[in-house]
Design a protein around this nucleic acid. Structure first.
Lengths: 146, 146
DNA sequence: CCAGCTACTGAGAGTGACTTGCAAGAGCGG
DNA sequence: CCGCTCTTGCAAGTCACTCTCAGTAGCTGG
């Protein structure tokens, strides 16, 4: 799976933006493709492939479309835990994720919000941490005391 | 899957220690069980169920044994990335993991080594981070510049 | 506006990593 | 060393994809 270059992520505000990018890439805006995009634009949180299919689309098609949209830099997927991956729009920049192991709540952050954390990790371990694809796991404030 | 109580993790130095704990729990030290434990004691890194089975044991049996040993507090498993889970001995305390998304290298740390990182995350997000079951992902020093 | 090139689609079968069901087998306390 | 019951191995099932392939439908150029 090749991701879009990390240069300047063009913002995809709506379906028109994506349609234009698809056209530019020699791809088509088919009905299933549009439905995937509409689901993602309508959602205010991350969705599983199954939620996107919503009993109306073939899962194969959903997965293929998500893959293509991810290559285009429109979509990104996250491995939140034991369940299936969840997918969301990239919008105008990469996002990082914190997920609660107890209640499953997901906090979305811009990459710059985690720069202090990243700095400490880099200083101590030399690792450049990324919470974009595999999120940070832990307990959210509500779940800390059991 | 219920984990051992987080009270005082008794150290399991060798097979004798584990055998005693098994006996105490009304479990038996069977041949496949011993082979799983021997593989883990012999390994100096985390192993997949398949590596533990090593063509000699039924995978079902390996999984069931790892589950039991995890309940006992002898073993812990980690989801390193896209592949299968890896298993290792807990020894005398919980461990946390940093894995390189590029080369796959895994760094093992005692939980106290990540307390500074944890403090920053807690301060900023209220989350109590844990890298025991889902590790921290990023680039290791060797892989940072491509 | 239609023909045709080819990207895309749905149905079905396949894969990897487990997980469950069950009859046969083997520890180990008495 | 008997027998209770914890374990085992095999087979089949599940979950989340992934691949194959024949048929369909966007788009573009005439």
């Amino acid at each position: 799976m090749t991701l879009a270059p990390p240069s300047e992520p063009l913002p995809f505000r709506d379906l028109e933006d994506v349609a234009a990018a698809l056209r530019r890439a020699g791809s088509r805006l088919t009905t299933p493709r549009r439905m995937v995009l509409e689901a993602l634009f309508a959602a205010d949180e991350l969705l599983t492939a199954e939620q996107i299919a919503d009993g109306k689309l073939d899962l194969t098609s959903v997965y293929r479309n998500l893959e293509k949209l991810e290559e285009l830099g429109v979509v990104r997927h996250v491995h939140i835990g034991h369940g299936p991956s969840v997918y969301g729009l990239l919008g105008d920049g990469e996002r990082e994720f914190l997920v609660c192991e107890r209640c499953g709540k997901v906090v979305v952050a811009g990459t710059d919000q985690l720069d202090r954390v990243r700095a400490v990790i880099r200083e101590q371990f030399g690792y450049e941490a990324r919470f974009t694809h595999f999120p940070l796991h832990g307990r959210c404030p509500d779940c800390i005391r059991r």
